[in-house]
Computed example of a mutant assay.
Amino acid sequence: MFKDREKYFEIEKFKNLRVKALFTTKAIGDTDLNLESGQENLKRFFKTEKLTPFSLVWAKQTHSANIVDIKNDIQEFFYEGVDGFITQRKDVILITKHADCLPIYFYDTVNKVIGICHSGWKGSFQEIGIKVIKKMNKNYGSLKENILIGIGIGISMEKYEVGDEFYENFKSNFSKDLLDCSFSKIDEKWHFDNVRFNLENFKKYGISPKNIIVSDECTFKNPRFSSFRRDKNLARNIGAIFLF
């Protein structure tokens, strides 16, 4: 369950395991990490949550499937062309930016590995979430049965209208049963359910449904969140995960 904490929502199941997995609302103010003011504002938010002296790790996202492992010998905290992170470090906060695209959170309960990725339709098409799991397995021996996943908060199917070419592209690359639960016609227009697509794809990959937490919030319908489709601006919500 995603619990509403006013300034952010967090995944209760992760918190109970001493992992903070959160998604901010507009209440924390400007979070444009391309600007120094946005970086400072985000640092102030984490400071009020008594999360210093954590270092913030973020990227210039490009809807890629590139994932970086933040190891103990890595001191760089900003990355170009990256849309996901994993780490065992306890001194960093992994951050992704969202304005309708999904944050997906990961936690290996045995090896104490956390991860997060930015999964818009391009990331979902490239199966970035599954690539995060594979990287966790390769680098830390993480097993599917030990990984908890949190999906959301993002735009709902109802507000996510897409074109015929979009649908045909997915149709050429994924199974009919996955398409049938991820696409729907509303007023003769295709709509895409990014949450359901990732949920069902994780299940097909072998993740137990009991290990997947899904949000039913919608960035477009809830004015507390930034939404590019609704607002057409550069404001972003922040997805973050860290060990505590």
Rank of each mutant, 00 (worst) to 15 (best):
M1W: 08
Y8D: 03
I11Y: 08
K13Q: 10
K15N: 09
V19A: 12
K20C: 04
F23N: 01
A27R: 15
D32K: 14
D32F: 12
L33Q: 02
L33I: 00
S37Q: 06
S37G: 05
E40D: 10
E40G: 01
E40K: 15
K43C: 00
F45H: 06
T48M: 11
E49H: 04
K50G: 00
K50E: 07
L51E: 11
V57F: 01
W58Y: 13
A59S: 06
K60W: 03
K60V: 01
Q61E: 15
H63A: 13
I67N: 03
V68G: 05
D69F: 13
D69Q: 08
D69N: 15
D83L: 02
D83M: 02
D83V: 05
F85D: 01
I86A: 10
T87M: 06
Q88W: 02
R89M: 03
R89A: 08
D91K: 05
V92G: 08
V92Y: 02
I93W: 02
I93E: 05
L94S: 04
L94Q: 04
L94K: 07
I95S: 11
K97I: 00
P103C: 05
P103Y: 04
I104M: 10
I104L: 14
Y105L: 10
Y105A: 08
Y105F: 14
Y107T: 00
Y107N: 09
D108V: 07
V110S: 04
N111L: 06
G115F: 07
S119D: 05
K122S: 13
K122E: 15
S124L: 13
F125A: 05
E127M: 10
E127C: 07
I128H: 07
G129I: 05
G129S: 15
V132G: 09
V132T: 14
K135R: 13
K135S: 09
M136S: 13
M136C: 07
N139Q: 14
Y140W: 03
G141P: 07
K144E: 09
I149G: 06
G154K: 02
G154D: 02
G154N: 04
I155H: 09
M157T: 03
M157A: 06
K159A: 14
E161R: 11
G163D: 14
F166H: 15
F166A: 04
F166K: 08
F174V: 06
S175W: 08
K176S: 12
D177R: 05
D180S: 10
C181Q: 11
S182G: 02
K185V: 02
I186A: 03
I186S: 01
D187Y: 12
E188I: 08
E188D: 12
E188H: 12
K189Y: 02
W190Y: 15
F192T: 02
F197H: 02
F197K: 05
L199T: 14
F202C: 07
K203L: 11
K203R: 14
G206E: 10
G206Y: 09
G206Q: 10
V214F: 13
S215Q: 03
E217N: 15
C218G: 08
F220T: 07
N222W: 12
N222H: 15
P223H: 09
F225S: 12
F225Q: 12
F225D: 10
S226A: 08
S226C: 07
F228D: 03
R229H: 14
R229L: 11
R230N: 03
D231L: 01
K232P: 00
K232W: 00
A235V: 09
A235H: 11
I238F: 00
F242H: 12
